[in-house]
Amino acid sequence: MEKNPAISVMAADTISGILLYSTSPYAKNEGNLTIDITQSNPNYLGYGDGLSPGSVYRFDGLLTIENNNDFPVCVILQSQSDLLEFYTDGESLPAISFTLNANESMSVGVEFNATELGLMEEYYDIHILEGGCSETV
């Protein structure tokens, strides 16, 4: 867990005092933070059109979540897709949770399991609860 990293934010989004941001070129702002690994991302350089079928890609720290409230929160990230998982250390899971104290942040990696050619449009939920995560979460 880091505290207030000094980095330039490329795409950011605030939910009830929780800042969700990414410094990755694969992120963009579209009203809120969006990960877009396609040619429509303004950061697209003309090469590297995406991921390929039958591959697993992991992007470390693709998302960063920062608690700007003066109280702790429990953050739960939940994938709505079989092709998308989250990780903060080794193992990736469809859902992860962690406690963020005031002004703490956590970077989260995203794992993609690409299966078939075409466009993958997936969603995930961010749940934020006041107070730390209980062990049962």
């Binding site: 969700l20 079928p53 690409a114 050619l117 993958m120 969603y123 749940h127 934020i128």
Partner: peptide, 16 residues
């Protein structure tokens, strides 16, 4: 303060 908040975000990937 809030007790609970939920949001949905998207990830779009081109499989090529």
């Amino acid at each position: 303060n809030f007790r609970y908040y939920e949001a949905e975000r998207s990830i779009t990937v081109n499989i090529t």
